[in-house]
Amino acid sequence: MMNDTIGVNISKDHLDAHRMSDGKSRRFGNDKAGHRAFLAWLAQPDTRIVYEPTGPYHRAFERRLADGGFALVKVNPRQARRFAEATGRLAKTDRLDAAMLARMGMLLDLEARPTRGPLLNDLKDLSMAREALVKNRTAAKNRAKNLTLPILKRHNGEQLRQIERQLAAIEVEIMKLIKADPDLANRFDILVSIPGVSAITAFALIIDMPELGTLENTQAASLAGLAPVARQSGKWTGRAFIRGGRANVRQALYMPALVATRFNPDLKANYDGLKAAGKASKVAITAIMRKLIVLANALLRDHRKWAP
């Protein structure tokens, strides 16, 4: 049980904090001096600190508190906004947002989770850079279909070759960082032992879902957004569908799921059974994606590689 809950709205220059125990609010600088002042302002050590991710602006603050052993709760901004609307708080300021986050953490009794370390933050930055390059590559390939002038074709080809070189360099750097850490290297080896899971997929699971191996199977599927959401009201029962979760993880699992339906005997049998039962291909593939994330979670939890 937490003795107190503090909501913190984080911006580039400031930290706006609200403490539930006495209702006091205060602004701090988002720098080393401000972080020290915030720690001195904390009334009790058993405090839950609730905040939203703000790109690079929350990382130094998060790391300082994590090193101090505080219970940190990083909430989804969309969920926080919906909570504010549900409680009738339509106005939005930094101070009001801090108070809303504190109230959300206390009323919902939000559970603290481990934060990313510096290594995972570096890997996440590399992963985001890689995603941007993949989008640029797709755009360049689409442009190439409509170009007619030789000079534009040449420039587009040069751009594509440069993107490929940059992608290769980033993937080498990601692999280098993972192999340099014994725990991440072991997780990588376990993941790529699963038929259909490539190095790129393993990168995504390690970086975007570091909780894998510590979750219940249903939690893993839900966190990836692969658990069907039931819809029922009175006598009406709607079709269940997936929603929410981490889109990057789902995207990374789509191609491995397709490969698994051909080369993983267990999952191929499962896929064929779903198709024989009349399920649409998309529904059957989603079910295989869910089984893959559950399988990865189980193997990482048991510290063993895949075996038939």
Rank of each mutant, 00 (worst) to 15 (best):
I242F: 01
G117F: 08
V8R: 05
N248H: 08
A112G: 15
D31P: 14
T54Y: 02
A204S: 13
W306N: 04
A102L: 06
A66K: 07
S233V: 03
M2E: 04
N76G: 04
N121Q: 15
R19V: 11
L72W: 09
D266K: 14
A112V: 11
T87V: 12
F28P: 02
R95T: 09
A240T: 11
G23D: 10
L42H: 09
D122F: 01
D125M: 09
R64G: 01
D266P: 05
R231L: 01
L212F: 14
G7Y: 09
R301S: 12
A43D: 10
T148M: 12
S21P: 03
H14W: 15
D266N: 13
R89W: 01
N9G: 01
G244L: 07
F188T: 01
I6V: 15
L90S: 02
I190C: 09
V192T: 12
R19S: 14
L108S: 09
K291R: 00
S193T: 06
R304E: 05
W306E: 06
A240H: 12
L300T: 05
D94I: 08
D94P: 03
T214L: 04
A168Y: 00
R231E: 00
L42N: 10
L160W: 00
M128F: 00
F263D: 11
R290N: 03
I10H: 08
D4R: 13
S222Q: 14
V197S: 10
A230L: 14
R154I: 04
R48D: 09
G88N: 03
A247V: 04
A112M: 10
R239A: 14
A169L: 12
N136G: 00
L96R: 00
A240F: 04
P195D: 10
R301D: 05
E111Q: 11
T5Y: 12
A129L: 06
N264A: 06
F241H: 13
V75I: 14
L191S: 13
T138A: 12
L119P: 00
L119F: 01
G69S: 08
V294W: 02
G244C: 02
A287Y: 03
M1A: 14
Q251S: 07
F203N: 01
R48C: 15
M100A: 15
P53T: 13
N297C: 13
M209E: 07
F70C: 06
A240I: 05
K153M: 15
A71L: 12
A260E: 09
D189K: 15
R130I: 00
L184W: 10
I288W: 03
Q162S: 05
N142D: 14
G278V: 06
P53E: 11
A86F: 00
K275W: 02
L215E: 04
N248F: 07
L295C: 09
N3H: 14
A112C: 12
A202L: 08
A139K: 13
K153N: 14
K291I: 00
Q166C: 06
N146H: 13
P195I: 08
P265D: 15
A296L: 05
R301K: 14
T93H: 04
N217C: 11
V50Y: 13
R250N: 08
D181Q: 11
A169C: 07
S198Q: 11
A220T: 08
D189E: 15
Y57W: 11
V50G: 11
T93C: 03
A99C: 02
L292I: 04
H58S: 12
D67M: 07
P256D: 04
P118Y: 06
M128I: 02
A43G: 04
L119I: 05
